[in-house]
């Protein structure tokens, strides 16, 4: 359980210097997200979605403003402390190539658990449970190159689940998948949010995918252009 709200952005900006010119992927974003929410982050390519997600997970730090996640001001932490914090609180699912190719599905899922104070048996229980939830109990010993793209994403979600994070960050997790596999992943994410109360931030291009969420945030040129409460609309 985290202090509420789970996410708070206060006038967050990110500036990159590239070849003399400044790029502003994020410009004074202020934003609040409640625990248990399912947020779809939308916007054209280059609008700053990935940058925002990386700030949320502490992979990156803002140029100015405050990023408070689970009550922790991430800018106040060192890179080492952020890594520790990350392993306790957030989990990532990327568009593709999420897994380490040398490890089996099971080993990939178990990997973040090795950073936690868990016994071997506990790690095993958590990892197998997570693989069961994503429906891959029978693919435990397969390596990524022996799995389909959809199965790989499910392993990535299992890995995200295994460490029991407060926050799940997914960057276009269905972007590389066919419609059927994408549908499976979405069902899985919806179930995780509904049955396990995981807070999910999902980056996507696809309005249909976004409709699964409770809330749609639209980014344009580093600014929040629209904030739609889908759940309330539906009701």
């Amino acid at each position: 359980m985290c202090p509420q709200p789970i996410i708070q952005f206060r006038r967050v900006s990110k500036v990159y210097h590239k070849g003399g010119a400044d790029i502003h992927p994020l410009d004074e974003i202020t934003l609040t997200i409640q625990e248990g929410d399912f947020v779809a982050l939308m916007g054209p390519s280059g609008s700053g979605k990935t940058t925002l997600l990386n700030l949320l997970g502490g992979l990156d730090t803002p140029t100015s403003g405050e990023v408070i996640v689970c009550g922790q001001d991430l800018a106040a932490l060192s890179s080492h402390e952020r890594a520790r914090w990350r392993c306790d609180h957030v989990a990532y699912v990327f568009q593709a190539y999420n897994l380490l190719p040398v490890l089996t599905a099971y080993q990939n899922v178990e990997l973040p658990l090795t950073l936690m104070p868990l016994s071997r048996r506990q790690r095993r229980e958590h990892a197998l449970k997570a693989l069961e939830i994503v429906g891959l109990a029978d693919r435990v010993h397969h390596r990524p190159d022996e799995l389909s793209g959809g199965q790989e994403q499910r392993v990535a979600i299992a890995r995200a689940l295994a460490s029991d994070p407060d926050l799940l960050l997914a960057d276009e997790p269905t972007g590389d998948l066919d419609a059927h596999s994408a549908q499976e992943i979405m069902s899985l994410l919806i179930a995780l949010n509904r049955d396990y109360r995981k807070t999910i931030i999902l980056v996507t291009h696809d309005p249909k995918v976004a409709h699964a969420a409770h809330r749609e945030l639209h980014l344009e040129k580093g600014v929040l252009s629209r904030d739609v409460d889908v759940k309330n609309q539906r009701m």
Binding site: S79, H80, R86, Y97, N98, P112
Partner: peptide, 14 residues
């Protein structure tokens, strides 16, 4: 990329 994944999972620079 694998290094990036490890870091995203919570592995430290060390």
């Amino acid at each position: 990329r694998e290094m990036g994944i490890l870091k995203a999972i919570g592995f430290t620079d060390g």
